[in-house]
């Protein structure tokens, strides 16, 4: 197998793993939420969610029928590679996964709404590129459904709005979304950069396990305060009321223009599906 075939193979395995098995941090957080939830309707929803997770894994089928649009986060290492060929390999993996798992074919032309039938099309699957000096290439597959993705939001705040403005925008976005994005959710926040970068960072924030705080103490504090604030709204599981509206809040930042304060919010449903692998130069693959 050449290196690009390795990437295609890994891509296919990552899609399969991500749509069937939830990462352990999310499972643990959902189990804890069920143990601590006091509202009857909230408990009923969490019970159904936990039963569903177990059943999907036992049967080897997708957790949710909305297997989303595929987003791949690719962090290149030292090895020089063709991005065109990596993109082709991940699109091929997506086409194969659509048939073999199966995935729901979700990709349509934005105007004609004609479905391509294989989850690929102009511009998708989405590949978010990053670079490193690592000995390996890292790929994360993150399939994301529309119920939560449609609640993404962006605002250009004034620099004087400051951190308080960021908090208010996040809380308002979560309240406005209500039960729509299938809570308990994970909330990704991107602050700074530019409008496009803030949105990109809000999605990248979802790559970090929940409970692992940002290394900057000020941002870590923002994450904790926002999580407490969101859970105090009482929106609850499925939006039917309860004490767990979000399982985690992750924020990422970038420097921005002195006249700007862009903020992006990306809400992730409880089915926070993702899977990663590292492909080393000699072709061996470690699934994380």
């Amino acid at each position: 197998m050449d290196f690009y075939e390795e990437i295609e193979e890994a891509g296919l395995r990552l899609i399969r793993k991500s749509v069937i098995e939830l990462p352990s941090d999310i499972r643990e957080a959902l189990t804890k939420a069920y143990r601590t939830e006091k509202e009857e309707d909230g408990r009923l929803q969490l019970k159904a969610i936990l039963d569903n997770i177990k059943l999907a894994e036992r049967l080897g089928v997708p957790i949710c029928q909305d297997t989303g649009i595929l987003y791949f986060y690719v962090r290149l290492g030292k090895k020089p590679l063709s991005l065109v060929r990596i993109g082709e390999a991940l699109a091929a993996a997506t086409r194969k996964a659509t048939v073999s798992i199966p995935l729901r074919s979700n990709a349509v032309h934005p105007f004609s709404r004609k479905n391509s039938g294989d989850n690929t099309g102009f511009g998708i699957p989405i590949v978010d590129w990053d670079a490193s000096e690592d000995e390996y290439l890292e790929i994360t597959a993150l399939p994301k459904g529309a119920g939560s993705e449609n609640r993404s939001a962006f605002r250009s705040l004034l620099p004087s709005d400051g951190i308080a403005g960021v908090k208010e925008f996040v809380i308002d976005t979560v309240i406005k979304a209500g039960g729509g994005p299938c809570p308990p959710s994970v909330v990704g926040i991107g602050v700074g950069g530019s409008p496009d970068l803030a949105m990109k960072l809000s999605k990248r924030a979802l790559l970090r396990p929940i409970g692992l705080r940002h290394q900057d103490p000020e941002i870590a504090k923002l994450e904790e305060e926002l999580l407490a604030g969101i859970n105090a709204t009482g929106i609850g599981p499925s939006g039917l009321g309860g004490s767990t509206t979000s399982l985690g809040v992750n924020a990422e930042i970038a420097f921005c223009h002195t006249a700007s304060l862009p903020v992006g919010v990306n809400i992730q449903c409880w089915a926070a599906r993702k899977a990663s692998a590292r492909i080393y130069e000699d072709g061996h693959v470690i699934y994380m």
Binding site: A164, E168, I171, G178, G179, G234
Partner: peptide, 21 residues
């Protein structure tokens, strides 16, 4: 859902206050 939305809205000022907004 309309009832719950009204309930959440009524808690908003308390949430803001906790976040020092």
């Amino acid at each position: 859902h309309a009832r719950l939305a009204a309930l959440v809205e009524s808690r908003k000022s308390k949430v803001y206050k906790a976040l020092r907004l």
